[in-house]
Design a protein around this nucleic acid. Structure first.
Length: 464
RNA sequence: GGCUGGAUGGCAGAGUGGUCAUGCAGCGGACUGCAACUCCGCGGACGCCGGUUCGAUUCCGACUCCAGCCUCCA
């Protein structure tokens, strides 16, 4: 049994899917007007970890992640760039795919784009109007009548009358109530637009998720997830839109990832303080970023600093060094080992408790230490443990590289030359010519290459 | 002002009513021609004040402080 913290009830609950062994999971994706930043990465990597865990637990997961490919910011940016909005979004989408893939995020099973579901949205809006949950204005906008939905704000715990209405929301004469949010926006000249019974226009942001959830997964999802800033108003609005019509819960379980902060502020596009995934990938190996992003519990907020990344890099190195020079491919029963030291059961216990990755990581490090100890005295047992370490790490999306290759990275230096230097040094050492041997070490050191002498020979790695 | 979630050793970060988190960094030792890895050992922590209890970092209450949200945002 897996326990998950449900934002809706504010407690951990046993997870029971609607249909046995099947999970319908919808995670809100991004608005593609710019490149994805590390905040997005944290969200995607977290849900990827969760999805992978469900999969290995034997569930058939249908994972949907939408793309918002039409909205005000996209239009503005496209105009600024002097390109069509669809050229802009196509470019951003392919960048997103590349960056997520680098971080080991599995592609979604379904990736609906808002612009492909405009008709579904229009149908929902029409039904909301008919049920008097929405109204049309003289200029052709359609708004959702928030006060008509009695439990509005139930997800975030907001009380309508306590919101700072008017202080931040722009005043709009056509709204019946400042709280009302837009379902359909009448188009201004030159803007991309779709025909509708209310005139040419485009959908508001929130309605797309209601439409795409329903179109791809049905009325009720097992899990609906997203970033911390979507809880309100986005997800509360989705609930208001969908449940007003279906009278059924939009999702049984709501999951929200904690914020990633930079210098005390939330990383966000509107604050302009974001670090793109692309920029981060230029500085650190993708696996280090993934490790960093999963090193805190998914719900807690975390701080991005270069020190933390350096630390993540060192920690990951420790795991890789444990499996270095160990045959991991032999296929023998490991049961006896787990009876003595229940690594796997502790690991799964941690993961089943709301995906406690820090605790699961601790198991990996326990394994690493025991492997290192056994290496010297019992290589066979060590390799069984190493296999276990790989298995558990793979569940989280780690340790897919060959340990040697990982340590060496992409040097841009001719590895044959390095090997020849190592050979030279070996000869010098054999002749007890340590002066020459140390000189060779120095020469390589200047290029950032570190030599490591082992009983069975000399290896090299990048120093970083 | 309202809502939501926090406060753990130098840093990061789990957890528990009474014996170990874990990682990074530091210190001492082993190994080593040098260096690194590795191993062994060490130190230090539970915001503040009350309460419950044989015993609380862990449960309850007050307080202080912090963050996110209440406009588009993962």
């Amino acid at each position: 049994m897996i326990f998950i913290y449900n934002t809706l009830t504010r407690q951990k609950e046993p997870f029971i899917p609607l249909e046995p062994n099947k999970i319908k999971m919808y995670v809100c994706g991004v608005t593609v007007y710019d490149e994805c930043h590390l905040g997005h990465a944290r969200c995607e990597v977290s849900f990827d970890m969760i999805r992978r865990y469900f999969m290995q637990a034997g569930y058939h997961v249908t994972f949907v992640r939408n793309i918002t490919d039409i909205d005000d910011k996209i239009i503005q940016r496209a105009q600024f760039n002097n390109e069509s909005y669809s050229d802009l979004t196509a470019r951003m989408i392919s960048a997103m795919h590349a960056h997520y893939a680098a971080l080991g995020v599995l592609p979604p099973d379904i990736e609906p784009k808002a612009t492909d579901f405009v008709e579904s949205m229009q149908q929902l809006i029409q039904r909301l109007i008919e049920a008097s949950y929405a109204y049309v204005t003289t200029s052709g906008d359609v708004y959702y009548r928030v006060r008509r939905f009695k439990s509005y704000g139930c997800l975030s715990g907001k009380v309508i009358d306590e919101l700072e209405v008017g202080s931040r929301v722009a005043f709009n004469h056509e709204k019946e109530d400042p709280l009302d949010f837009v379902l359909w926006k009448a188009a201004k000249p030159g803007e991309p637009a779709w025909p509708s019974v209310w005139g040419n226009g485009r959908p508001g942001w929130h309605i797309e998720c209601s439409a795409m959830c329903q179109a791809t997964l049905g009325d009720t999802l097992d899990i609906h997830g997203g970033g911390p800033d979507l809880k309100f108003p986005h997800h509360d609005n989705e609930i208001a839109q969908s449940e007003a019509l279906t009278k059924k819960p939009l999702a049984n379980m709501w999951m929200h990832v904690g914020a990633l902060r930079v210098n005390q502020d939330k990383m966000s596009k509107s604050l302009g303080n974001f670090l793109t995934i692309k920029a981060a990938l230029a500085e650190y190996p993708a696996e280090v970023l993934r490790y960093f992003l999963l090193s805190s519990h998914y719900r807690s907020e975390m701080q991005y600093t270069t020190d933390r990344l350096k630390e993540a890099s060192n920690s990951l190195k420790r795991l890789y060094s444990a499996i270095q020079n160990i045959p991991c491919d032999q296929d023998k029963s490991q049961d006896s080992i787990d009876e003595l030291c229940p690594y796997e059961s502790v690991f799964h216990q941690a993961m089943r408790d709301d995906f406690n990755t820090p605790k699961a990581f601790a198991v990996l490090f326990d394994l690493a230490r025991d492997i290192n100890k056994l290496k010297k005295i019992d290589l066979q047992s060590a390799s069984l443990l190493a296999k276990k370490l790989l298995k558990l790490s793979h569940l989280l999306g780690f340790l897919y590289h060959h340990p040697e290759k990982y340590a060496q990275g992409d040097t841009g230096i001719d590895s044959e030359w390095i090997e020849s230097m190592i050979e030279k040094r070996k000869k010098a050492k054999q002749q007890r010519d340590f002066k020459t041997a140390d000189h060779i070490r120095q020469v390589l050191m200047k290029k950032g290459i570190e030599l490591l002498d082992h009983r069975d020979g000399t290896r090299w790695q990048m120093m970083k």
